[in-house]
Nucleic acid binder design. Structure first.
Lengths: 140, 140
DNA sequence: GGTAGATTTGAGACTGATTCCCAGTCGACT
DNA sequence: AGTCGACTGGGAATCAGTCTCAAATCTACC
C-alpha cells in the first residue's frame, strides 16, 4: 500500500465555496457559521447552512481558517495566515490578537522530548483583559 | 446604598453542591457537566442536570473551577488547583503526563503585557505520540 | 423546637447550534 | 457532450445547555 500521496481532499471550487471564502476574506474578525450564512444571504449568495458548516469544517481541517469557541460556545471562524500562531483574546470584548510564540514552540518540543513524546502539536490560548476594557472596569 | 460588602453569593452548602465539589475533586482532568452528572449518578448521588450546570457555573464565576471548551465545543470544568499545570497527552494511548511550565507562564505574561492585556490566564495542551506508541506505529 | 422567608432543587419543555439524510445538481475529465 | 462522483440544500434529528415553577430545604430568629 504505497499510498504516499495523502492528498487531503482537493476541495472542488464551487460557487458556494468561493462565496464562503469571500465572506471570510472580507471579515476582520471571528464569525460564527450562522453569521457567515447570514452575510452570504445578504449579499445574495444563496448557500445552505449545512454547506456553510461543512465547508468551514473542511477549511479548518486543512488549515485555511482558525476556529475558536466564543464564550457562548459557538464555533467561530476566521481566515488565518499559514504560519502557526496563537491567540490572545480579551475576555470582555472579544478582541483578538494573533501572536506567534517561537518560545512556546521551543518549550513544547523540549518538554515533549524530555518525556519521550514525538510529533507534538500544541494548543495555546491566552485569555485576558485588554487595556481598554481594564480601564472601563476600573472606572465602572 | 453603602453595600461595600459585595460578597458574591455565599453559596449554601447543600448535599448537591457537596457532591459536585467531591466529583470535581476526585477527577484529575477537565470534565463536562454531563460527565460529572453521570459520575454523580454512578456514585449514587442523585443530582439534577440543571443543578449540575447551575452549580458549575456559579463555581466558575467565583473562581473555584476552571472552564474551558473541548474541541467538540462542550464546556468542561476542573477544580482550580493551586499549582497550575498542563498536560502532555499521547494521541494514541491517551497516556497523560502532568507538566508545569514556568517558562510558559512567563511567556504568557510577557506577551500579554506587550499588548496591554492584564489578568491573563492561559490554556496549553500538548498532544503527541509517546515513546511506546511511536515504537509500535513504526513497527506496525 | 418551631416558624417564616429566601434559596435551591429537579423534571421536563424549550432553544439554538450543529449534524445527518439523501435525492438532485455541478465540476472534472475524456 | 456524456459519465461519475463530489457537492449541495432543505429539513428532520441530535444534543448541550437554559428556563420555568412548584416543592423541598436551609437559615435566621424567636
Amino acid at each position: 500500500m504505497p499510498d504516499t500521496d495523502a492528498r487531503p481532499t482537493a476541495l472542488r471550487p464551487t460557487r458556494q465555496r468561493r462565496a464562503i471564502t469571500d465572506a471570510l476574506a472580507s471579515a476582520a474578525d471571528f464569525q460564527s457559521a450562522q453569521e457567515i450564512h447570514d452575510s452570504l444571504r445578504r449579499t445574495g449568495d444563496k448557500v445552505g447552512l449545512a454547506t456553510v458548516y461543512r465547508t468551514l469544517q473542511a477549511m479548518a481541517e486543512s488549515g485555511d481558517v482558525d476556529v475558536r469557541h466564543n464564550p457562548a460556545g459557538e464555533a467561530t471562524y476566521r481566515r488565518c495566515s499559514d504560519s502557526h500562531h496563537h491567540h490572545l483574546v480579551c475576555r470582555s470584548c472579544g478582541r483578538t490578537v494573533e501572536i506567534t510564540g517561537s518560545a512556546v514552540e521551543r518549550w513544547a518540543h523540549s518538554v515533549a522530548d524530555e518525556h519521550g513524546f514525538t510529533e507534538v502539536s500544541h494548543t495555546v490560548e491566552l485569555v485576558g483583559l485588554c487595556a481598554e476594557c481594564a480601564r472601563q472596569e476600573g472606572s465602572g
